[in-house]
């Protein structure tokens, strides 16, 4: 069971981080990053199955693969930004976390521009 392994890694990491935080705070931050990356890599292989299902559904609904790709990119950006922002907050760097989130929001909006334009064009064409 992968979830047991992941839970074990997370618990061990948490205990070690608490201990390290008192003696060496930088090491605690490094440990939290390492644990996060390890857990992410463990589930990375399973994301492919979800993406396949999404792709099949989008083909069935006649949604362009470009739109689906944009959507997946946006979700990826959101996850990465969230992950990094959490690490920054753990390291008591709230300002950095806010900046990362701001950058992610801008990137999401930039990626959404083609979709917004397409929706706008479609809606304008509906008006006689």
């Amino acid at each position: 069971m992968d979830i047991l392994q992941i839970s074990g890694i997370a618990l061990t990491g948490a205990v070690l981080a608490v201990v390290l935080k008192q003696k060496s705070p930088p090491m605690a931050v490094l440990l939290s990053i390492t644990v996060g990356v390890v857990i992410f890599l463990m589930v990375l292989g399973k994301i492919g199955a979800i993406v396949d299902v999404l792709r099949q559904l989008s083909e069935r609904a006649d949604i362009s693969s470009i739109y689906l790709g944009t959507l997946l990119k946006i979700i990826g950006i959101a996850y990465i930004a969230d992950f990094i922002a959490q690490i920054c907050r753990d390291a008591d760097q709230g300002a950095f976390a806010t900046k990362v989130e701001l950058a992610a929001k801008i990137m999401v909006l930039v990626l959404a521009v083609p979709i917004v334009v397409a929706v706008l064009q479609a809606l304008l064409r509906l008006v006689p």
């Binding site: 949604i63 989130e101 999401v108 979709i115 479609a122 809606l123």
Partner: peptide, 23 residues
Amino acid sequence: LPGGDMRRYVKMVIGLLIIMAVL
């Protein structure tokens, strides 16, 4: 979707995509 502040933004884009698909 991830939790937190980013969720609202991503939901907006997903909403646009759904409008596109239905149209």
